[in-house]
Design a protein around this nucleic acid. Structure first.
Lengths: 215, 215
DNA sequence: AAAAAAGTTGAACGATTGGTTAGTTTTGTC
DNA sequence: GACAAAACTAACCAATCGTTCAACTTTTTT
């Protein structure tokens, strides 16, 4: 029952567990993104992971549990990879970086983006709760930073809530509604160059609306 | 077998049909929007319409047929209510009106917006086919109009595809992801004033990015 | 008013799905 | 290598859902 030695043992012992959970999680994320949250069956996930269905339920009691685990991993990734605003480096740099990071994420983790959007449009309580617990505070901070910049005359005053809503909308679209984007762009697959164009377009739009001159 | 009398009779005869189909269609749209496409059962639609389940299937053979009928009515509404660009009235007026109309639609038909978004994110073949058949041509027309305006020096050259993708993204967000918007705006329900603010914000953003001066 | 057509509906069916169980195999520890 | 814990899995179950059907009523047509 001693603390430290037990921990180490548990860590060693559970490498199978960690490995399988990771496999199931990434597989589930992919299948959820492709098939939709409700259409996805635990059998599909099992097949695609090369595991029997009962094994999925051994690690995740219910489909709901599994979905929430997937969502949690997605939201964790989110938190880790989106940097906060830094007052000192000014609005141009921070807004440019923010948009760039968000679009990179849409491009590099399209499955995560899609699952999150599906959960959000379906108003999954888990995701809503997360937004309430985290994003509101986060927005408050960014708002303060932006107000500082406005006071310093580095940018015009803007409706910060709408600014973030629209940035979020524009950047997510390229991952969540990629089928539509592909059709309008007449491409079979979106390439990095398409995302670069989007990056440039969105950044210019946002900077102009903040009264930050074009370079 | 004569033409005109038969038509009139058919119209009279089928008033029950038309009435019930309309009831089922609007109810289905509402339930689909609230529950999600796959989670919605024909029983739910039946209960909410005050009809027995078998009656739903009398008018729409399968759930898939019903969903496609709902989508078709949504897309028809779309076509009827979004006006095309008019070269003569210039970019400022047309872009402003376009954004205003799109946001009005999101506000006045949130269910339609949501069902469409769900079908799109789920890559329903029916919706994709519609976009291919219709929206690509539409975009082409708008592109020509915009090019005319650019030639006339009324606006700066822009990446038209990205312009429409982002306008679409921003305006749809307020209906499709209203749960998120409500949380960020700290409101229980979105009011008309919120949509007006959004209208102003998005319009300003778009006009600035097109090099059209602020009033 | 008779016949035909359209509309209505309870009941049942077949297929699917999430989840369980009970028993087996593997792994880690002494 | 003995023992316990963890991992694994085939078979099964209860519930749900889309769909069908046959009997019945109402409406329309002749």
């Amino acid at each position: 029952m001693s603390e430290s030695p037990k921990r180490t043992k548990t860590q060693l012992k559970s490498h199978i567990r960690a490995q399988n959970q990771a496999l199931i999680l990434t597989t589930a994320e992919r299948v959820f993104a492709r098939q939709g949250l409700a259409k996805t069956t635990t059998q599909m996930i099992a097949d695609e992971a090369g595991l029997p269905k009962a094994n999925i339920h051994y690690y995740y009691r219910s489909k709901k549990d599994l979905l929430e685990a997937v969502l949690e991993s997605i939201l964790q990734l989110w938190l880790d990879s989106v940097s906060q605003f830094n007052v000192e480096t000014g609005p141009r740099y921070n807004l440019t970086r923010y948009i760039s990071e968000k679009l990179d994420q849409s491009r590099l983790n399209p499955n995560a983006s899609k699952v999150f959007a599906m959960a959000l449009i379906g108003e999954e309580p888990f995701v809503l709760e997360f937004l309430r617990r985290f994003f509101v505070d986060e927005l408050q901070k960014e708002k303060q930073t932006i107000n500082r910049w406005v006071e310093q005359g580095l940018m015009k005053p803007v409706a910060v809530e709408h600014l973030f809503i629209t940035i979020w909308a524009m950047t997510q679209t390229y991952a969540d509604f990629d089928a539509q984007v592909k059709i309008l762009l007449k491409k079979d697959e979106l390439e990095e160059s398409d995302f670069d164009e989007a990056k440039q377009f969105v950044t210019r739009m946002v900077l102009l609306s903040c009264g930050i001159e074009d370079i």
